[in-house]
Design a protein around this nucleic acid. Sequence first.
DNA 1: AAATATTTGCAACAATGTTTCTTTTTTTAT
DNA 2: ATAAAAAAAGAAACATTGTTGCAAATATTT
Lengths: 139, 139
Amino acid sequence: MDSIVQILKQNNLSVTEGRRKILSLFLNSNGALAHADIEKNTHSHFDRVTVYRTLQSFVDKGIIHTIPTSDNSIKYALCKDECGEGHHHDHHVHLVCTRCGNTFCLDNVVTPTVKLPRDYTIQQVEVVVKGICKACNNQ
Amino acid sequence: MDSIVQILKQNNLSVTEGRRKILSLFLNSNGALAHADIEKNTHSHFDRVTVYRTLQSFVDKGIIHTIPTSDNSIKYALCKDECGEGHHHDHHVHLVCTRCGNTFCLDNVVTPTVKLPRDYTIQQVEVVVKGICKACNNQ
DNA sequence: AAATATTTGCAACAATGTTTCTTTTTTTAT
DNA sequence: ATAAAAAAAGAAACATTGTTGCAAATATTT
């Protein structure tokens, strides 16, 4: 069985054309995708609402996660295995390439420990690095 | 001379009612503000466009900086002295309180060093911590 | 293959952000 | 202090992004 179908079934999502297509976009992209990227890649074959709902359900199931940005466009990227429904473990660093504009999850870079004063409680740490990605640096 | 007027003049911005008011909101708020917060605090006394333009000019001049979020609402906070026109040095950590919803710049917490593989270049590191702020923890 | 459950697409709406142009306000120079 | 020049504000129109309710279509279960 197709690994795309497998992922959907494992997460109790019915297998529909839209979900298959959108999930495959994530699997075949090494960078993060925004709603607009998906619209573009599918040539708006799916209703905008469907795309929003699909992304939301993928987030809910822990298949993808959101990446914070400063430019009012939520980006989404595949989660690694440790993520599941209701709990995300995104202990990796995100890189926004200022040359090509793509966003990547640096899965091998561990989020550094942040130490806050005693009267704060840490729940989650997000690190977004702006810089130049591998591909852009090597060209 | 009023410190608000002083800041505006130092940055070659003409002193208008809107800019004075919006800058004072930042000076009197310990957390970050979003466009909507400013609208609320000014009772929409200024045109929406004016607020957008004012925020943009403050960012351009290095008076405030944006904070990345995952929820499509750009937050702005005052910059410390090291920031100037064209270059921001936001080497501090941002805390989003999951209880009160406010966002704070933790100016005394130093951004941890992130080490990337050799073929990446780091330009800026943003750290956003989700957790509980001081005030919420002490109540 | 039929019944049930789920998802999709559509329409309408709400919020957020941008652009152009005219009027008003601020600054500069006299 | 005032007139000229420069800058900013406001208004209108538009673009983009995201949400909700509902009927039609598709997927799953039996």
